[in-house]
Design a protein around this nucleic acid. Structure first.
Length: 432
RNA sequence: GGAGAGAUGGCGGAGCGGUUGAACGCGGCGGUCUUGAAAACCGCAGGCCCUUCACGGGGCUCGUGGGUUCGAAUCCCACUCUCUCCUCCA
């Protein structure tokens, strides 16, 4: 959620930020007007309350309380009426301001390039060379189906489209990747968390997912709207939600968390995109990395987080590049996002494999996650960062396509072998 | 699912319907003392919002939402959550 105070003090800054996102800025004046009305209502209602409280205190101090109460009761009753009248618009205005504010994306960092879509994203760096093949490299679904490690047909039978069954070496590879990612997260000082994957509406709301992913999430209806439970679209939700409404000691920051969870997305609006293979699934696993950090270091921490993600693909020997997303491509909560894109020989292109974002105080404001620099200091909002480190399904895709052999078998990257327990997947699906 | 108990400040724990935003203890912060530390002693301290250039002033806040009352942490109602016992269960 955007800082209302920023909007009051620097409306032009917010207007400029909206323009960069390619959205209108009429909301600025609308909110400022609502805010003026709201504050006027609060001020008048509160001064009437103060008047009333003074009368009540007089009764409390009077020698004869009954007599004092009898004398003052009519004036108090009149004040009660005026208080109710003066204050009745406040909750309505609150709601309207919140509703407007909830639709405004985070203010972009100055380093984010202009542009409306992915074509304007900026190449930051590349690592590795795309592998050369002396045969025509195949897409992962072909290799996977031939070896039997993916079973799309039966997955469709039991669940529908955009689900995949991993079988044998495929399932083991998935498990090995989860272990590998978690192992590296631990080395990089992330605390491992195993959170619930069903979360309450309040949690979804506070992490800002309801506005961003509202049509992307699977929900279980409760007896009423408030006991609905949502399947998480990413572990970012429970990991940042954990500290909702907390004031953290400043010397404990940054907090770094890693969680391996399944993630669930409806992928509404992605019809026809990535229909083959396991690039875009309704259910997938990943290890998510989350930081709660301080404002002055959050952009440096974003670099570290991104390095943590790319380090995984360096170890796996998969060529990749880091892209700085342009204004139009940067997500709602983020002030700045780096995508890590892995080279996929079957597709002959780079595809997103991790997305690392600094949400600054945008998420923390809605979730009310704060910290104190000193024991006696005023609480300030933390900055939150999140990124995948890494995405298990998409990494399987990258391994299968990059390590495919002419005979239809698949090599396993060296670092993964101790976790997998095998060094290759043979054309018949067996392992060596 | 059934029965009971309870929800107060960072923690523990008080709180006749009226200077209780909240005793007391621990913890925290700042002092005094000390070469330094500890101990002891003294003092300061919740959060949110409105207002003010500022000093300050004001409102809200004792799980949440309603109600009674001139006045509610204290009384009433509903809800939520936690704990104990029973039941069930990976």
């Amino acid at each position: 959620m955007l800082n209302l105070d920023l909007l009051r003090r620097e409306p032009d800054h917010v207007r400029a930020a909206s323009r960069r996102r390619g959205i209108g800025s009429e909301f600025v004046d609308r909110i400022l007007e609502l805010d003026r009305e709201r504050r006027a209502a609060i001020t008048s209602a509160e001064s009437l309350k103060a008047e009333k409280n003074a009368l009540t205190a007089r009764i409390a101090k009077a020698a004869d309380k009954k007599a004092a109460a009898a004398e003052l009761r009519p004036r108090i009753a009149e004040l009660d009426q005026r208080i109710a009248e003066a204050g009745k618009s406040i909750p309505v205005l609150d709601e309207r301001i919140d509703a407007e504010l909830a639709l405004i994306p985070n203010v972009l960092d100055g380093s984010v390039p202009d542009g409306s879509d992915e074509h304007a994203n900026q190449l930051v760096r590349t690592w590795g060379e795309p592998p050369r093949f002396d045969f025509e490299p195949k897409p992962h679904w072909e290799i996977g189906e031939r070896t039997g490690i993916f079973d799309f047909e039966r997955a469709t039978k039991i669940s529908g489209s955009r689900f995949t069954i991993l079988r044998g070496a495929g399932a083991r590879l998935s498990r090995a990747l989860a272990q590998f990612f978690l192992d590296r997260a631990a080395r990089n000082a992330y605390a491992e968390i195993n959170p619930p994957v069903l979360v309450s509406r309040a949690t979804m709301w506070s992490t800002g997912q309801l506005s961003k992913f509202s049509d992307q999430m699977y929900a279980f209806e409760g007896d009423d709207a408030n006991d609905a439970l949502y399947l998480i679209p990413t572990a970012e939700v429970p990991l940042t939600g954990m500290h909702r409404d907390e004031i953290l000691p400043g010397d404990g920051l940054p907090l770094r968390y890693a969680a391996h969870t399944p993630c669930f997305r409806k992928e509404a609006g992605a019809a026809g995109k990535d229909t083959r293979g396991l690039i875009r699934q309704h259910q997938f696993e990943k290890v998510e990395l989350v930081w709660l950090t301080t404002p002055e270091r959050s952009f440096d921490d974003l670099e570290t987080l991104t390095r943590n993600a790319t380090g995984l693909y360096e170890e796996l020997g998969i060529a990749h590049r880091v892209m700085l997303l342009c204004a139009g491509d940067t997500g709602f909560n983020a002030a700045k996002t780096y995508d890590v894109e892995a080279w996929l020989p079957g597709a002959n292109t780079y595809r997103e494999i991790s997305s690392c974002s600094n949400c600054t105080d945008f998420q923390a404001r809605r979730s009310s996650i704060r910290f104190r620099r000193e024991a006696t200091a005023k609480p300030e909002l933390v900055h939150t960062l999140n990124g995948s480190g890494g995405a298990i399904g998409r990494t399987i895709v990258a391994i299968v396509e990059n390590y495919q052999r002419a005979d239809g078998g698949i090599g396993i990257p060296d670092v993964l072998r101790p976790f997998a327990g095998f060094a290759s997947i043979e054309p018949d699906g067996s392992t060596r």
